[in-house]
Design a protein around this nucleic acid. Structure first.
Lengths: 355, 355
DNA sequence: CTGTTAGCGCTTTCAA
DNA sequence: TTGAAAGCGCTAACAG
């Protein structure tokens, strides 16, 4: 009949229904929904009752359209290790829920050829309030440019490259590697070998630096026989450990710069008929799931990925709040999260032969 | 001056700007955007040029509001193993992008006390077009009820419980376990032990059934000494394997119903001074990352999680299409995905003692 | 403290 | 093949 009667697309009640039911205007309902002050207590209760009775839920799309923010945060992710993304999600989701955001995972990976050119479009169309960018995407120039072009608030997690004005959560890879090396020195080790990661990887460089610093501080000269190249893979760790264990005198401890290579070093130790940790101490970095899935369980460095992700969300939410309220004060641009050494069964004082 | 001048919240150009730029109405731009027919080729090109020039991107919130669909799919997830969620994301994201959906990860876990009561609200407020529900959430009654109450299209991934009208992607745990057992039988094993998973876990039951079927079919009587209880954890696997290896005569092969327990069985084998696979064959189920991170690498069953997630998205997208177009034909309610046995180095024919 | 008005940017409906 | 008008459900701005 009337032109105005259009099929209602909303599944449930709308703000108007609630308003009518409670005998107030839609605006008042809106105020109650957003917990604004300046609503008489009695009115508020009446509205809340109506909301309950009609089982009303606000429509996010409408709200987003009117407010120009979506309460969606993007996670720009490119297939890091299983353990990493899992932890990341745990930390981020937890905080997102608390802060009222939803987390949209966007894959920024090799899955598609042209993703780098498509990323800009995606960022603009999806109306994220902001994005979290963990490694390795956080160091991708195309992505950073797109994020900037879309003037999208963001927080990067442990990026290699500093970037002016780009807020980030930092890890303390160098300090952690240094402390792990010191731990080995304290156990009495002197011939401490190190398996490096790929040069391209910033964290990998920092870990190596930390090792070098600690060795130097202990007055030990850098010995090329004690340093092997790896690629963060199990296979590369196997080869690196084999080389190290063939050197003479052989190291009493191997510090692999990630867990996968450390696990490989343990396997290779066994092949060389060495008992771990009696004949050879092996330690890793990352505390991935494999660290406890092997025997003996691995002494390693644990970076609290979940904590970092949570902080990243907090930092982003904080920025978004400031933008909304037009607050002047500059938010912090960098936050460093400490890691800890997890001592398990793969490390011990050197045996008689090594001392 | 005019009251109408409100700060434009949209970052870039709107559909009106494009319309003006191209000298057409907004409606025509909309038609071009949605690739509708009935637009003169010349007009279409003019509009597309304007879009390009203004670098216009449609506003999703506005579109969602007008169309009553969001192109957001929820992933209702509760902290399964790291490998699982990682694979799940890979498969789902890939398909989501192709189908034009965004994936919103919602944590349905123990993180909060009252999540089960909050889930209903969440589902209704977030305006998902549909949800994907992997285990273990897919068997949570509260969630299923909430999904139904919100009349939200959904697809469950390998649920334990069938549910009328609830579409799902199925795994072939029973068949796979049976085939793995047959593989061991073909190698010549007869004393094949099995480490069970928790009884509460549906897949765990099915795997055990598959093992039993194969053993029976081979005419081997069920031997309680060959069956140990586990909890899908490394620690429980250690104990189970210890018990099994102390039985006399000891098994020549252990089929652990997941990889973590299989890895534990290998470790325990080593402690019993058994060479794997010469003295003892160990096989697992899942093909998690640890399967290749140990030595010898594990023979196991690989379920294509990514494929399953991709299929789930496809299935959901298909349903949503049908709903949109009001298509009559019923979509399929179940799709089974086959798994495969990955033979690595932890399995071999039994040694002389075992034959 | 509460209501009215005028949009947010897009799509549906209907008419041309 | 195109356009004008009327919303989608909500909120900002202003008035009372």
């Amino acid at each position: 009949m009337s032109v105005k009667t259009r099929a209602n697309k909303q599944t449930g009640a709308t703000i108007k229904d609630v308003a009518q039911h409670a005998g107030v205007s839609a605006m008042t309902v809106s105020r109650v929904l957003n917990a604004e002050p300046n609503v008489r207590e009695e009115t508020r209760e009446r509205v809340q009752a109506a909301i309950r009775e009609l089982n009303y839920r606000p429509n996010l799309s409408a709200r987003s359209l009117a407010r120009a923010n979506t309460y969606f945060i993007g996670l720009l992710y490119d297939n890091p290790s299983a353990g990493y993304i899992s932890e990341l999600l745990i930390g981020a989701l937890n905080r997102c829920r608390k802060a009222g955001y939803h987390l949209v995972v966007e894959s920024c990976g090799a899955a598609e050829q042209d993703w780098e050119s498509a990323i800009g479009d995606m960022l603009r169309t999806s109306n994220f309030d902001g994005v979290i960018i963990p490694p390795p995407v956080c160091d991708n120039a195309a992505v950073l440019a797109a994020v900037e072009a879309a003037s999208l608030p963001h927080v990067r997690i442990s990026p290699d490259l500093e970037k002016a004005g780009s807020p980030r959560i930092e890890t303390d890879d160098r300090a952690a590697a240094r402390r792990m090396t010191e731990y080995l020195l304290e156990l009495g080790h002197r011939r401490i070998a190190f398996i490096r990661g790929p040069e391209s990887h910033g964290a990998s460089r920092k870990r190596f630096e930390g090792y070098c610093q600690a060795m130097e501080a202990a007055g030990l000269a850098r010995d090329p026989d004690l340093i092997a190249e790896g690629e963060f893979t199990y296979r590369s760790g196997l080869e690196a450990a084999d080389t190290l264990l063939k050197s003479d005198p052989r190291p009493t401890a191997i510090f692999a710069s990630n867990d996968d290579m450390a696990v490989a070093a343990i396997a290779m130790g066994h092949r060389h008929h060495l008992d771990i940790p009696t004949d050879l101490t092996v330690v890793g970095f990352d505390d991935t799931q494999t660290a406890t899935a092997i025997w003996p369980q691995l002494t390693t460095v644990r970076q609290p990925i979940a904590t970092m992700a949570a902080q990243a969300v907090d930092m982003l939410a904080d920025r978004l709040d400031r933008i909304r309220t037009g607050e002047a004060g500059e938010a912090s641009l960098c936050q460093e999260i400490g890691s800890e050494i997890i001592v398990r069964d793969s490390s011990a004082a050197p045996g008689p032969a090594g001392r």
